[in-house]
Nucleic acid binder design. Structure first.
Lengths: 117, 117
DNA sequence: CACACAGATTGACAAACATCGATACGTCGT
DNA sequence: ACGACGTATCGATGTTTGTCAATCTGTGTG
């Protein structure tokens, strides 16, 4: 996946192709945004996120979520893991249940990055 | 690809699992956000987007972009297509070159949706 | 017209992903 | 200790995705 280390020099054509060497956001920030993006890149996960956010308690356990999205428990658990790894939700084990809540800071920060592009 | 039409009823357990039926954002909005998310879900595309945004002219043609990301012309073209279909960039053919520019409105709107979650 | 060049498209292929069913892990009540 | 229940993880499978090399399309220039 993505070599991106070739030092390939710009051909410096005649009419187009300004140098503009290595502008853009730093490599690791791009990586972070991409991770969040990938997590948001599945309608089911967006759905899960919004279900948790919209819930009265601001949190939800997996058993709350399987029915609304119509997927198996295992699959929902997998999606929650992806969301958690992207920093979009946090997991808190309370008794038998695992409560997931939205990490507003990540949303805010992601929104800020998008605006700052 | 995602069945998501099973009418599966909530089991209504005893200690957890509040109804909270079909809350969350409307289905099509989730789909739209997911499309943008998917487009942002690849580091290379984030890189491309930021390169265009950071460029002095606020736009770039493909030949400007292949070198910085170190990928083949065909691949970059493909990525630009994905970005365009997500509404993140706009294409304008000018002479031999195709100039891509960032659609700030989409960024703003996406940021707003994230904040509103 | 013919050639060169920018970009899009196609075909192929490996890697990543979403999903399920089954199974393993924790935690509670009995 | 046992069984029930919520959740995590694993193995398998079909689909999607990122990438390249090659080809096709369109635009300008000789």
């Amino acid at each position: 996946m993505t070599i991106t280390d070739a030092p390939i020099d710009a051909p410096a054509a005649d009419g187009c192709c300004a140098p503009e060497a290595d502008a853009g956001m730093p490599r690791d920030e791009a990586e972070r945004l991409a991770k969040v993006g990938k997590a948001l890149g599945d309608p089911t996960r967006v759905r899960l996120l919004s279900l948790i956010a919209a819930g009265a308690r601001g949190e939800a356990c997996v058993c709350d979520l399987t029915a609304p999205v119509g997927l198996s428990q295992g699959t929902v658990s997998h999606h929650m893991r992806v969301l958690a790894e992207a920093g979009l939700v946090e997991r808190e084990q309370r008794g038998k249940w695992a409560y997931y809540s939205v990490v507003r800071g990540t949303l805010e920060q992601t929104a800020a990055v998008l605006r700052g592009l």
